[in-house]
Amino acid sequence: MSLAAAQHGFLSPAGVEIAFLLVGLATFGAALVTVTTRQLVHAALWLVVALGGLAVEYLLLTAEFIAWVQVLIYVGSVVVLLLFGLMLTKAPIGRSPDADSGNRWAALAVAVAAAGALVWVVVDAFRTTWIDLKGPAAGSTRVTGESLFQNWVLPFEALSVLLLAALVGAIVLSRKAKADEAFGTSATADTPVALPGEKEGAR
């Protein structure tokens, strides 16, 4: 890798590197607009652009699998869920007057700190490592899968358990709230026995 690094200089970038930089700038811009725009749905749509830009960056780093998973999960599902939620709130067309928060300076501080930490970690981990674009893809599905399930299987499983716990927790919370509500209404409605079928009708 050090040999490869010697052939690359920051002053004579290759086409791929320029593209990487430009896409990165576009992604960064989209991310900025996402958090600063006053139009809720536009923020979600700019988020699509930012996430898509990230996917392109992954592609440029030859991590094809990660790129498509990024699009599938984030653009295809998370943003759709987000939009679904926004539509349920009747997000208005045009500016939302209250789409601002008093915590924005604290949020900025946290964001800058997180970004700084991440950039520092990445820089420290990879330094002047260059991906050899001419050889076999370093981020193909096979390579990703092998490294994921051989070297990183424990963090992977820990993450799975964490997500599962979050899922179960979400279900428990939503069920509990519903049960409470049903109990409350049946008490106020003065129905001595509420059969499961009748509960729907009572409400």
Binding site: V41, L45, V48, E64, F65, W68, V69, V71, L72, V75, G76, S77, V79, V80, L83, F84, L86, M87, A91, I93, A137, S140, T141
Partner: peptide
């Protein structure tokens, strides 16, 4: 494509975004 299935399913999911945008933006 190396990750063909993922590409195909991912991109198909993006198409639905168009309907969502249309639905919201039509007022």
């Amino acid at each position: 494509l190396d990750a063909g299935i993922f590409f195909v399913l991912a991109v198909m999911g993006v198409g639905v975004l168009g309907s969502l945008m249309a639905g919201w933006a039509s007022a």
